[in-house]
């Protein structure tokens, strides 16, 4: 991902009012992490599993924070139980930022990723989590802000799936 896009994600998270980000780093969007850290206005919470990225994030959201959860798409598989048993069942707003490896537009797609990417949208559909595909910087900040507003309005997780230009 170009540095400019990484910086614009950070700006979008600012605009969306996000103040806590739980994360397990991955390969496509990780350039935003040093920017988030340097920014100083986000509480960054590093985790050992995407499952607890969701549950720790849910605890922070119930405590009054606006939370984004950053993960690779394989992390969605790992965190399905947490999403269902806490975020969905209790109705907790979480903005899921998912690097969609193995998707059509993944510029680094290969046999390692392709199968992992194939089940992401069917799983989101099965969990009834609304999502948007984000493949370029067009309207990026607006897209993040809209997603942030929507998760707060729904009081449920909402996902942005990043691929295309974000995977270069």
């Amino acid at each position: 991902m170009e540095q400019e896009l990484a910086q614009r994600i950070v700006s979008g998270l600012h605009d969306a009012g996000i103040d806590v980000i739980t994360y397990l780093p991955e390969t496509r969007l990780s350039q935003m992490l040093p920017l988030l850290r340097d920014d100083g206005s986000f509480k960054l919470i590093a985790v050992s599993s995407e499952a607890e990225a969701v549950t720790i994030g849910a605890g922070a959201a119930l405590g009054g924070k606006q939370v984004a959860v950053y993960m690779e798409c394989t992390g969605l598989y790992v965190s399905c139980y947490s999403i269902l048993s806490i975020a969905k069942r209790f109705g907790v707003p979480l903005l899921l930022l998912i690097a969609h490896l193995g998707s059509f537009a993944d510029q680094r797609n290969n046999s390692v990723y392709a199968v992992s990417g194939a089940y992401v949208t069917p799983i989101l559909d099965a969990l009834e989590i609304q999502y948007r595909l984000v493949e370029s910087g067009q309207n990026l900040e607006t897209c993040i802000k809209d997603a942030g507003r929507h998760t707060q309005a729904l009081k449920l997780p909402v996902a942005l799936l990043f691929s295309g230009d974000f995977t270069r």
Partner: peptide, 21 residues
Amino acid sequence: DLNLGSMGNALAVGIGLALAL
């Protein structure tokens, strides 16, 4: 009191609350 009624989640939700508050 926040009764979660699920296995494997209370500790992490507690962490999130402790950090937020």
